[in-house]
């Protein structure tokens, strides 16, 4: 299939989706919990609901950002230390797999007690980011080619110097990939964390809207979460392209 026909079929796919969404909302095909797109946008333009959505999105964004920074810092540092002291490596890998497979929601009861309800969203966001950055860094650090490490050992460079001067710069493209994937994980982690009794945020209005049958608010807050995770992904992707342009 050539480019134009592919583009055309995508357009058809999208328009069909929007058309059926609107129709399903107006005709109540899927019950009253499915709003039409027009009703949803009307709700989001209403000043009071717009203010609520904006405020909650900002709170979730700040939780996700804190978690993102902390999680990526810890992931990066642990991966670096794992590659310097190779004895730690297998244990760290098991630990990271364990953290990855641990359902975030299962950590909720633990986090509320240890860090408190207000910090829990940032903590879950951090845990969600940690794994992707850790794995990306570890695989990036292992990429060092043979010639470079030979040169380093001929000149008698120590492990830490080799790490800072050659291996970390080498690993950066992969680290950026890990960070990019981490952004969406951070937003999701923050929302899950907010379900454990945080005072504000998108997660809070999602659950309360679900329980109180506020369908438009429910959809609007889920939409805000989507926009938030999409935006952060594109932001990181833009940084990544700039970064790689500099590097090459």
């Amino acid at each position: 299939m050539n480019r134009t026909s592919r583009f055309a079929s995508w357009c058809i796919g999208f328009s069909l989706l929007i058309f059926f969404w609107e129709l399903a909302g107006r005709e109540n095909w899927l019950g009253s919990a499915w709003p039409s797109l027009s009703a949803l946008f009307a709700f989001m333009q209403d000043p009071s609901s717009a203010a609520l959505l904006l405020r909650s999105s900002a709170d979730t964004a700040s939780n996700a950002t804190i978690g993102f920074l902390l999680g990526s810092l810890v992931g990066f540092t642990l991966a670096c230390s794992g590659s310097v002291w190779t004895g730690l490596g297998p244990g760290l890998a098991t630990f990271a797999t364990f953290v990855n497979a641990t359902p975030l929601i299962a950590l909720g009861p633990l986090l509320i007690v240890t860090v408190g309800e207000e910090v829990t969203p940032a903590a879950t966001a951090g845990l969600a980011v940690f794994f992707s950055v850790f794995i990306a860094t570890l695989s990036g650090l292992q990429d060092t080619n043979r010639d470079q490490s030979d040169v380093l050992s001929i000149y008698g460079s120590g492990k830490i110097r080799a790490l800072i001067c050659v291996r970390i710069p080498n690993a950066m493209p992969k680290v950026m990939d890990g960070l990019k994937l981490g952004t969406t994980a951070a937003v999701l982690g923050a929302i899950i964390g907010e379900w454990f009794g945080a005072p504000t945020g998108l997660g809070v209005i999602l659950v309360s809207a679900m329980q109180n049958f506020q369908i438009e608010l429910l959809w609007a807050s889920a939409l805000c979460g989507t926009v938030l995770s999409g935006l952060s992904f594109f932001l990181l992707a833009a940084i990544q392209t700039q970064f790689i342009k500099r590097l090459v």
Partner: peptide, 21 residues
């Protein structure tokens, strides 16, 4: 051609946040 755009759309959606819906 119809499913792939939907795939792109859904991939950018945090599905866990849609569980209440």
């Amino acid at each position: 051609g119809v499913i792939t755009p939907a795939t792109l759309l859904v991939r950018s959606i945090p599905i866990v946040a849609f569980i209440p819906i």
